[in-house]
Amino acid sequence: MDLFFSLALQIIYGVANLALISLGLAIVFGMMRVINLAHGEFLMLGGYTVVVATNNGVNIWFAMLVLAPLVVGIIGLIVERCLIQWLYGRMIDTLLATWGLSLLFIGIITSIFGASTTTVISPPLGVVKIGEYTSSGYELFLILVVIALLILVYLTLRLTSLGLVARATMQNADMAACLGISTSRIYMLTFSLGAAVSGLAGGLLAPMTGVLPNIGVIYIAKAFITVISGGVAILAGTTSASILLGGVNGVISYVTGPTFGEVALLFTAIILLRLMPTGITGRFFRKSQ
């Protein structure tokens, strides 16, 4: 029974982790149909923000929950104004440009901090005992944060006027523009918001993984697969795909070890896309966000 709980917790954590690293990408993709290949680097920048801030004496919670999203959000804003806004409607060029951007970020950070791991900050919460098994308290905290984040995004989309305008732009950008909404401003805000969520995710994961200039690579494969399997609906897509893929990854990892967990994840996603080319939300939950 203890084993069951501890395993279930591991799988739930895997699902939450997947949702956390994908949410920023999903917001940008769902709203703007832009796939941001520099997503991994936004996570990386969030991590670096936290490490640099804590090494300079800032409270780690403040650094993770406030500074990381703020800094990366501003970087996202600059990127959107300087680069992405010229490429709307040219999807492939956007992919290529953001890829160039990702290399650029890796290059800049390597020049500043060097190619090796910068001081690892320890997870600030202790361990939780489940019978004879232990689990990290920080993982539990992350699960709660992800749930809170999903609820927050849902409420923002559902209840605020910004959410209403954003949903209108998502459904039909031309019609929204006709009604006097500045879609270019909405896109700018969305991209910056997506970057901020990525920064938050990167900051929260930094104590678990440490930071490296090219740590983004670890995340992006999983994030892309989750977002594409989920489809265009931001919340329903991310959540359903995270649960499916995270579950598969968790179970296979438990049975065969971590080597084949990711392969199973990819395999599931490819078969899923063969059956539902527009992702889970292209077939189910069509009315959702």
Partner: peptide, 20 residues
């Protein structure tokens, strides 16, 4: 002086924007 990734990234961005 210059990191190789930095140069490659700049080349890619510049070409996509200016010499597609």
């Amino acid at each position: 002086l210059l990191n190789a990734n930095l140069v490659l990234g700049s080349i890619l961005v510049v070409f996509v924007l200016l010499v597609p």
